[in-house]
Design a protein around this nucleic acid. Sequence first.
DNA 1: CCGGCGGATGTTAGCGCTAACGCACGCTTT
DNA 2: AAAGCGTGCGTTAGCGCTAACATCCGCCGG
Lengths: 346, 346
Amino acid sequence: MDADFEKPIPRRRRGAVMSDVGRLAGVSHQTVSRVINGSSHVRPETRERVLAAMRELDYRPNPVARALVTGRSNTLGVVTFDTTLYGPASTLCGIERAAHETGYFIIVASLKALDRSSLVDAIDRLQLHGVDGILVIAPYQEAADALADAPQRIPIVAVEAGPPDAVPLVSVDQVAGAMSATRHLLDLGHETVWHVAGPRDFLEARQRLDGWRSTLESAGAEVPVPLEGDWSARAGYDLGRRLSRDRAVTAVFVANDQMALGALRAMHEAGRAIPDEVSIVGFDDIPEAPYFTPPLTTIRQDFDDMGSRGVRLLLRTIEGREPAAPGSKVQPDLIVRASTTVSPRG
Amino acid sequence: MDADFEKPIPRRRRGAVMSDVGRLAGVSHQTVSRVINGSSHVRPETRERVLAAMRELDYRPNPVARALVTGRSNTLGVVTFDTTLYGPASTLCGIERAAHETGYFIIVASLKALDRSSLVDAIDRLQLHGVDGILVIAPYQEAADALADAPQRIPIVAVEAGPPDAVPLVSVDQVAGAMSATRHLLDLGHETVWHVAGPRDFLEARQRLDGWRSTLESAGAEVPVPLEGDWSARAGYDLGRRLSRDRAVTAVFVANDQMALGALRAMHEAGRAIPDEVSIVGFDDIPEAPYFTPPLTTIRQDFDDMGSRGVRLLLRTIEGREPAAPGSKVQPDLIVRASTTVSPRG
DNA sequence: CCGGCGGATGTTAGCGCTAACGCACGCTTT
DNA sequence: AAAGCGTGCGTTAGCGCTAACATCCGCCGG
């Protein structure tokens, strides 16, 4: 007993805790807490002493303990599905950067399957883990549906694509992008434009398809049957071969740059000159696009920016300002390079 | 007092907690804890009742509270530096997948600067946040140095590259990869092989450089002055233009596929036929490499696998089996495609 | 001269969980 | 039959922090 009493210093395996700081500064742990949380009711002199003690002990508050009591963790959850695709990967990167700048951590939950239960499950797990808000990068129909009727106990923002009105959404205007790609080709004198679409369960793929179709229709051009790929260069190649056999094809709008690369390759192998015989437009403007053979005309999406805008929106919601901000939609840019030119029949 | 006694149900804003489950099952909250943690000292019948109560209340344990008391969080930290590069992005993806499969969460801290303090800082923040272990993807010299003398209170594993012996390392044998690339070119009859290297502060860039140089030296070939790029297609293009002006250049080993793409483009523009006049080998085997013009001969690295092996190693260390496993090094594969052929002077 | 008020601080309760011990019970051992 | 021991639970302390209240003190007006 006495022995215990003689050594009041409980040697911790971890760093100093709040009461250690308090003891050294001659105040209670609560005053230390006040200093940390910027309470105004602390005498400047006391504050200084506490700050000095914190420095001396190299004290850092324990976020886990704080999270337990406040229910807030300074952590944002991100639900994503396939981080190797250029879009999601860049978006994630932008999110991370933006979160980091505002002092938040990012915790990632990736989906194993594309069904609704796995999306709900991921949101659930993140929530349980104490995140303050969630960003969802899951631009396909199932996810959007699931998101629309998921129980939302904490703020959620969808990035890239999502259900129309259920949650705030930060996205690029896919329809407008597809329209300007198609219009660009039409303006070059092509009678019509073929389309290599993305997987039909991807919202973006559908929107690009819609933009393409409507532009063709309103221009009175024939609407060819669209082909459907899986975003990969391989799919673009396979589909490109099909297209290369049809001499009527002079212009193709491909739903992303990787598939466009494959298409470029297929055309080249088939002896179809690009852009002289066939013009091709991609979508995304990946960093490599200017170095394709030929350099690819494409639609630029700023994923990085989208990520950071998503974070800012989410943070605003969390901080309680806007209860349900509507989100925002950015216009993409057409980047004209060497893969498109006037129609050979013009 | 009596009023309080009458309403023992404290309506919670969040879900049920352990004692709610206990109350419903007619046991103490501790017994619920035992059931959850699989203690053997619970009667099967009691266990069933607890399980039923959990199901009825849709109870899920609070990981934050658990983390506070155990000091373990089922969360792994990942320190990364630029997730848009193919390598780190894929590795991160592999890590995420592997972690997810074993029930761990991933929390990401990306470095803003490439100096040592920011690496130490990132590790620190992750640690504070309660992660159980950390994976570092920071394949450049500064980071390796910082890692080597960082205070390691929790298990750390380096992935892709790191300090030789300070921490367990999971990596691909870069030197061997560079050697097989260079040897491939030499075997095709090229007198020597030029090199477009990565940034010199990247460990991988140096190792590839070393492998290239040593192969040339041991073959008695002349060692040209290597060029240094920043991994981007643009750099590959700029450097490729330089190389294209020198008619002596018939074989180039480029340190990654993106730069190789730029080099391909530059050669093409300069009218240098590939592979007939100039052969080019890349490194990484990104998914688009087979669709370049021409399809790129390259060295395949399995990043995804590396990520998951990193996680497994880390988990083994955390679980306390191997205290300091040495890590492992995988051999990369040479993938021969159409960008290389026999020397035009052969 | 005293009640009152508000600024600066301390004390007390938890947040939801696990660890450590306590204790009754039934069974074996000497 | 007394002592021992393992099983199946309950009780009690925290983990490190914040929120809410309690307390002290100096200064004001009535």
